[in-house]
Simulated scan of single mutants.
Amino acid sequence: MAEPLGPESRPVVGILGGMGPEATVDLMRRVIAATPAQDDADHIRMLVDNNPAVPSRIAALIEGTGPSPLPELVRMARGLAAGGATMLAMPCNTAHYYAGGIVEAVPLPFLNMIALTVERVAAMVPAGTQVGLLASTAVFKIGLYEQAFADHGLPILAPERQDEVMALIRAVKTGDTGAARRGALAAIAERLVQGGAGIILVACTELSIMADAIAGTVPVLDAMDVLAEEIVVQAKGR
């Protein structure tokens, strides 16, 4: 029987968090739920920088009024690396706009939620399927998913009222995830299906917190689940 790995030999996941704080905790919860474990020692070590002071991605990318979050993200990544992280993950879709800068500055494997999610969707549906995308306005503006899906022949279908999606994202940031908000998210997803979406992709970690409210006749995939599952694969080898 193989000896268990000592603390110095085990993979350590460094999480660049705080965008928002509840989404960070949600990722940790999903990693724990996805980890096959019989005891505490079977779980994955996570170092978390839950930093709500990361400059606003919306202000930087949509409004053009705020500073780039990249310097702070690099500082966080370096701190996690110094603390013993052997890989990095970031539970914020929009912040992946800066993934290249993080990777360039910190020589650790970066589990790219965008790339992982696009590959998963492409394996689930045939080319030509419209992907109903629930995401922040910044994600649409910078084309974070658009080109990657286009490379697989998968067009994106956006909600008709993106302002309604942003209202839900802002509500979650205030802690409002009640029945009214959950119902509104389900209704937006249903309109995407009625508009021709063959799969719904939840690509905002605030919306991930309410994603279980979405039900319908097409598959629903949450990018946060994809990231959590990949963390388990990388850290546990399964």
Rank of each mutant, 00 (worst) to 15 (best):
R45S: 08
A148V: 06
I44V: 15
L111M: 01
N50H: 00
P7F: 10
A184K: 12
S9P: 00
M224Y: 01
V121S: 12
A41N: 07
M210D: 07
V139K: 00
V220F: 06
I169G: 10
I62L: 15
A99T: 08
G153L: 08
I58K: 07
M76Y: 11
A34Q: 06
E164A: 15
A105P: 09
L201Y: 12
A135M: 08
V25P: 00
V202D: 07
V118A: 02
V118W: 04
A105W: 02
V218I: 02
L154R: 05
V193M: 06
E229Y: 08
P7K: 15
V48W: 03
M224G: 11
L116S: 06
A158S: 14
L227H: 12
A81S: 14
R191N: 05
G216P: 08
A123C: 02
L80R: 04
G64R: 01
I188S: 06
E229C: 04
T177R: 15
T35Y: 00
L108D: 12
R10D: 05
G20W: 03
E230F: 05
R29Y: 02
G198D: 05
E164F: 01
V220W: 02
D212G: 01
I188F: 06
A53D: 14
P219L: 11
I15C: 11
M19Q: 09
C92V: 14
R170H: 08
T117S: 15
V74F: 01
I231H: 11
T205W: 06
M113F: 04
G83T: 05
I32W: 01
L80I: 11
Y98C: 03
Q130G: 10
R182K: 13
L133N: 06
Q162G: 13
E22L: 12
G20C: 07
D26F: 14
D163I: 05
I44S: 00
I58M: 02
L88Y: 14
A53Q: 07
A53S: 14
I200E: 12
